[in-house]
Amino acid sequence: MPQLLTVVAAALIGPDGHILLQQRPPGKSMNGLWEFPGGKVDPGETPEVALARELEEELGITVAPHALFPAAFASEALGDRHLLLLLFTTTAWTGVPRALEASEVRWVHVDDMHQLPMPPADLPLVLSLSALLRAPQRVGQRG
């Protein structure tokens, strides 16, 4: 049975509705591809706490775990491991996102994400996010 690898990612939604993506740096697997910022969930962490930590490490921003809203997930086999990628949305953070670990960050309209090379696991998330953003209820609201 493959080992489950839980990874969290964020769709940071700016005031104009654009979403922040980051480009994987040289030397890392899938370098040059555009992705939602995030990373692995460490033992003992909730997904929201892990994502808040990752966003501070990768982008230099502060996000309260309670300001992260579940949006979608992807599941993909990765050889001897199985990836479970959890996507959250947020419109609330402190600081200006900058590429601390990535090659570059870019604000992109959700419809334009289809033109960017992205990791295979991110592609279904783009479709889900597109549908979510078009839904009558605003993203980031509970209930």
Rank of each mutant, 00 (worst) to 15 (best):
A102I: 08
S130D: 13
M113N: 03
L5T: 06
L78E: 14
P43A: 11
H114R: 13
A9F: 06
G38N: 11
A99C: 02
G143H: 13
M30G: 06
H82I: 00
G39D: 11
R138H: 10
V108R: 12
V7G: 03
T46A: 08
D111Q: 13
E101L: 10
G95Y: 02
R138F: 01
E35D: 14
Q3W: 03
L21V: 00
L127T: 12
P124A: 10
V49K: 15
R138P: 15
L59P: 08
T89C: 11
G38L: 06
P47M: 04
L132Q: 07
H66A: 13
E101G: 06
A72Q: 14
A131L: 13
N31W: 00
W107F: 07
A11Y: 06
A74Y: 04
A121S: 15
A121K: 15
P65Q: 09
K40N: 14
S75E: 15
V63W: 08
E54Y: 00
Q22G: 06
G27S: 04
G44I: 07
G140L: 06
T6N: 12
F69C: 05
L59R: 07
A102T: 08
V41D: 06
L133G: 15
T6R: 15
S130V: 01
S75W: 12
E58Y: 00
A77I: 00
H114F: 14
F36C: 08
E57S: 09
T62L: 11
G79F: 01
P26D: 11
V63Q: 12
L78D: 11
A77R: 15
E76F: 00
G39I: 00
E104N: 10
I19F: 03
L123A: 12
V139E: 15
L68F: 04
V110K: 02
P120N: 11
V63S: 13
V126G: 09
G27D: 13
A9H: 13
E56T: 07
P65W: 03
T62I: 12
E56Y: 01
A71C: 15
W34Y: 05
L55T: 03
L85C: 11
P43M: 05
A72F: 09
A10N: 08
D80H: 08
I19K: 01
Q137S: 12
R98K: 12
P65F: 07
G140Q: 11
W93A: 03
A67R: 14
N31C: 09
Q141A: 10
L51C: 07
A121E: 14
